[in-house]
Nucleic acid binder design. Structure first.
Lengths: 244, 244
DNA sequence: CGCCAATGATGAATGCTATTTATTAGCGAC
DNA sequence: GTCGCTAATAAATAGCATTCATCATTGGCG
């Protein structure tokens, strides 16, 4: 009496796309809950309603599965952001928008962001991967903003656009690590304002006397940007950038 | 004829400190060469001249061994920097010094820096660890510089010192990730200048001509009122101004 | 209608490693 | 010398990704 071999084993055939999306959905769940190392293929298989071996029919290994999951998430994110961004005018507003949306996505999906920062980006094959290209496109929006700002005479001509990219995204990551570890919380809108202002103005006290009008403008700019972002609508009026 | 059990097995007794430092030296080598995951306890034991089990007499597990190795490296680094820093005067010079020494240590020990960023800092028990405290002391020098600069009237009074810390260290990390993955190189001195200047001055062009401020204000007031109404929220408080 | 090849799916086997454990060897006290 | 204590050892254990030999479905073709 063979214990189970004699029993007809259950087999459930499905179209490959369905299997793949089931597996990816289950994998996303498990990776998010457990992190890469503690995620078990067994667990993923169980939740996807397949057996361990089946996962290897569609994905070469655990890491490839992770990469596909994160790619999927990232692509979705990019699609959502792209058209909104196109409507924002003025270098301050554009930087603020980029900072804010990035902070928001970290705030919404901390576990996935973490996987990206900790597992994907440090890998030696990251450069050359699809995710690298996606991320490049994502961050290059900021580089372009700076270039345009320089050309338009808004921003200092000697600034390196790519260094500004590292300044902004690096600052965001460094600031959010505690949150990503599960410690505390942050307010994306408030932090976006602070970072944008700091990057824009720097630390040094300029020699310009601050007119009382300026602080009014500053307050209004901030309130407007926040409200526009919150309302999800395009900025008010002129193509003449943020004046000042 | 028992294959080996009958042969007198070699045992080499040493004082614990010596054993520990041998193991840590071997572990440092292997972690640096292979990274955390691909480092094998077997390999470490072999190079330290002990057997695998002996490592567990001194270290609870592989991760604790990693932490001890990185701690040791970090402590050494701090000792070297501390007295030099005390001699530097002026906020620009002090920031530049901190940026430069940090870049230099990444440039000198990329593998260890990577372990710190990728394996240690993201761990849930990082906060509360000794390394957290060491790193805190390390980065707080910059926070203090900013505070002093503000008090002395060198730096903008409204800047958040801790945000400047995240800006600077985040920028450095983001900028050096490619190098940490083994792609390309960078010049610490040159990059230190660029980062310090960017942080110090910001992006914005300093000398604004007193422009048609009134029309700007008018536009912003209108947009704000409209948006606040649309969003159904209370008007932005004057006190919360984005200064300048 | 029924059989057959192709391939999806399975569950057990493999292999690699961290970690544990039972055993042995050296060293100091008596 | 020898007895006990502990460092050190080598073998055993266990967890988990990955592979493999087999089996079950399905759609095409007689």
């Amino acid at each position: 009496m063979p214990p189970r071999s004699a029993l007809k084993r259950q087999v459930n055939r499905l179209p490959p796309e369905r299997r793949i999306s089931d597996i990816m959905a289950a994998a996303k769940e498990v990776f998010v809950e457990k992190g890469y190392n503690d995620a078990l293929i067994t667990d993923i298989a169980l939740r996807a309603g397949v057996v361990e071996g089946s996962i290897y029919r569609f994905f070469a290994n655990k890491r490839e599965l992770l990469v596909k999951v994160v790619e999927h998430w990232f692509e979705e994110m990019l699609r959502d952001d792209a058209e909104q961004f196109a409507a924002v005018r003025g270098s301050w507003n554009q930087i603020r928008f980029i900072v804010y949306t990035h902070l928001t996505s970290i705030h919404r999906d901390p576990a996935l962001s973490r996987l990206m920062f900790q597992e994907i980006r440090p890998a030696p094959d990251y450069r050359g991967s699809h995710l690298f290209e996606l991320n490049r496109a994502y961050t290059n929006r900021l580089v372009d903003v700076v270039k345009v700002g320089i050309a338009a005479g808004d921003l200092r001509p000697e600034t390196s656009p790519s260094l500004v990219r590292d300044l902004v995204f690096g600052c965001i990551e460094h600031r959010t690590w505690a949150f990503l570890r599960g410690e505390g919380d942050f307010d994306p809108a408030e932090l976006a304002d602070a970072i944008t202002n700091l990057v824009h103005h720097g630390l040094a006290l300029g020699d310009e006397p601050a007119s009382p009008m300026e602080s009014v403008v500053a307050r209004l700019e901030t309130a407007t940007a926040r409200l526009e972002a919150a309302a999800g609508i395009a900025p008010t009026k002129p193509a003449s950038a943020r004046p000042r």
